[in-house]
Design a binder for these strands. Sequence first.
RNA 1: CGGGAUGUAGCGCAGUUUGGUUAGCGCGCAGCGUUCGGGACGCUGAGGCCCCGGGUUCAAAUCCCGGCAUCCCGACCA
Length: 643
Amino acid sequence: MGVGAPAHRNDHRHGDEQRDDEDEHRRTLLRAAERRARRVRRSSHRSPARRYGPRSRTARPGVPAVPTGCAASLPGMRMSRLFLRTLRDDPADAEIDSHRLLVRTGAIRRVASGIYSWLPLGNRVLRNVEAIVREEMDAAGAQEVILPIAQPLELWERTGRDTAYGPQMFRLTDRKETGFALAPTAEEVITATVAGEYSSYRDLPVNLYQINWKYRDELRPRFGLLRSREFLMKDAYSFHVDVEDLRATYREMYEAYERIFARCGLTVRAVEAQAGEIGGDVNHEFMAVAPVGEDDFVWCTGCDYAANVEAAVRAAAPAAVAADVPAPADVDTPGAGAIADVAAQLGVEPGSLLKSIAFDCEGDLALALVPGDREINEFALRRAVAGRAVRLYSDEDFAAHPDLPKGFIGPHHPEVRLVVADPSVPAGAEWVVGANRVDAHTRHVVPGRDFRVDVVADLAVVATGDACPRCRGALRIDRGIEVGHVFQLGTKYSTALEAVYTDDAGGQHPMVMGCYGIGVSRIVAAVVEECSDEAGIAWPPGIAPYDVHLVVLPGRGDAAAGVLDAAERLYRDLQAAGVSVLFDDREVSPGVKFADADLLGMPVQITIGAKGLARGVAERKVRRTGDRDDLPIDGVVSALALR
RNA sequence: CGGGAUGUAGCGCAGUUUGGUUAGCGCGCAGCGUUCGGGACGCUGAGGCCCCGGGUUCAAAUCCCGGCAUCCCGACCA
């Protein structure tokens, strides 16, 4: 490097006087160039970080011009030029590793609550994830489109989701007072679009996707990118003549998702899930296993059963059926409206009490029954009553039913119209239940004898140690970050938006739909959660901003110019070989460079210093493992390019 | 929307209780010099709407009232 300095051969070791003179000459040139550059920099307001050698903004002689296309196509970047400021202190508002490190590494900056700017390094990661998603979606036969972010509210009114989403949707009004929503998702737009183009069974199936920003006005944005109000999401929508055809695409998407997450370096578990606002029946969530995740999921240690805790069921162990149970008898339990208090007063296990949860089922008083040591799964309750509207009793409901004292409810209440019981509450077992009056419970109550059970269904929230419904193995609960979700939607949207096709007999049917989402920006956060340590991030090779972090340590000795030359040459050659390189050419102390290299987390670090160069080697450190070894200076490119 | 807290330089914080010099410290940033293989050191310097608005007072970062923003816990949610 240096102005007009010819590139050296790799002949660094020799101490002949002529060479010394040359080095001296080069140093003089370097200093002169530096002074010139300093003057230039003073006169301009744009001052790049100090780096070795001249500060020209243009390519040096002998250095091939770097393409200036999109960021992801740039094979290399000098840190002296990179728009980046790493933080030595953790930001005060970041709770979790991914938020903390993404801010510290200058990948993102907060602009408003739950809204972030992506700076160059973060943008490169995001684009890399996006590229993986795009490749796999294309390979699976999906076609990319771009749908509007600003969507007419009218479209949402047609499916009723404008109210279903409620304040969760960002809304705006144009100058003509027409309502718009910032897209939280795009079922409506895509369905209307397909309905406008296709009307024959011959056209189907078709699978369309986009990678675009989505907006949800969360009650409480938190955890940086994990729960943000603006996020990048890949959403795909498929249209079919029937469910069988849908299932084939669903399976293809499911498999594409597994490849995508693997390529991103994420440990992901697919779990059966509960359909939310989107609708439909069969669906799976892809959970990145992480303690900071916001969703609990259940998985079997013995087979491949896995489900979101909302959807999970267990193989219930029914309570023992007792013979010759005495007649029901009330017992005073003053002040004991909670399971634990009742159990303590009566000297029985909480599991021998019956928890009776009152709910409204389309105007009827109904009860859900689980053993006292279990929680009730509200989603399971909805499934159990199949389609009927269900609302757990609120304080107002209890106020309207003074004969139904909260905490003292029992299933032998005369006005109960519907009793739904967990399988662990079988006919014939004996329970302690509420006496339907304050401060009293009833003992020796037996389902089937003392009250009627209308529906038996899994109601209990699954707990660690429960038996797997498939293999009876032990279930475990872990936390995860939802990074993907695939749904078999059915005809909810195609019916509402009249996306119909004509079959070969001339009959008309709504198209059968599937939809498939991936949280692209959320993946970035999930990866950092999984791939980081005390020193910083360790990006997986598939999505790292750069393949290699090249550190040059020229020192101040006679070898400095040679070291710089060698580093410049390597920077150039690696790029020529297709390896993307972040080149730390800043004039800062070695400790700063090493700390930043570990913090920023490129998969491989290459250090060129006087010590190694004297032996003809560069040093390699694998960020993830910390393993170090020496590479012959001429072998670096081939060693890295072959990876 | 309930409960709790915080807003002071790019980042992290002190100062506020008890009003009173020119609002401070560390990091970062700029200049000079010394250093140079794991976040070096000295000297010099730049950088502030003390969240906003109103009030009390001779005097407000500090006290009072009202906003706004941000964070945490809870409810909600992909």
